[in-house]
């Protein structure tokens, strides 16, 4: 029987060119469509339409009123928490909320506890509203988030 010398054998060569073409196309496609996903999250707000039978509302639990004022360009000019002037200092707002709700807020069950009503000028920029919501709903302590007020509602829009 004749056995072929394998060392001498025909060198099998696959033509890589076609594959590399496709692979580079794929690579370019993925590089072009790649977009760093920004982490997004929500402030959950439960706001049923206030019905006219407002008499049933428990008045012992009055909402904390936060009034936000804006200038013509939509910049924040003043904040008032329960009629106390706070200027535009978000930290002051937070420390005042902390004083109002104290350390009780984290122990309360979800959906309970104090409520804040945000009453804002119509043309105030939305980012200031989010800043204010961030300040009243909690703060970061290292990696931990301390909850302050979970219930948020909006007053009627001012035209």
């Amino acid at each position: 029987m004749k056995i072929r010398n394998r060392n001498e054998g025909v060198k099998q060569e696959v033509n890589m060119t076609a594959m590399i073409d496709i692979v580079f196309l794929l690579l370019i496609f993925f590089v072009m469509t790649f977009k760093i996903a920004e982490m997004e999250g929500d402030f959950s707000v439960r706001m049923p339409l206030a019905d006219s039978s407002g008499g049933a509302v428990d008045n012992t639990d009055l909402p904390i009123k936060l009034r936000l004022r804006a200038d013509g360009q939509g910049r924040l000019t003043a904040m008032e928490l329960n009629e106390v002037q706070l200027g535009t200092n978000i930290e002051r707002l937070q420390s005042m909320v902390l004083g109002l709700v104290g350390g009780t807020a984290p122990s309360e069950a979800a959906g309970e506890g104090p409520e804040v009503e945000i009453d804002t000028d119509y043309n105030l920029r939305y980012e200031h509203v989010i800043d204010a919501i961030s300040a009243v709903s909690g703060y970061k302590q290292g990696d931990r988030t301390v909850q302050l007020i979970e219930r948020i509602k909006f007053a009627k829009p001012r035209r």
Binding site: M47, R125, Y126, V129, F154, K156, P157
Partner: peptide, 13 residues
């Protein structure tokens, strides 16, 4: 972020 807050309130309403 620059939307008028009132517009967002109207959407909610």
């Amino acid at each position: 972020k620059d939307t008028a807050a009132g517009d967002v309130q109207e959407v909610i309403r």
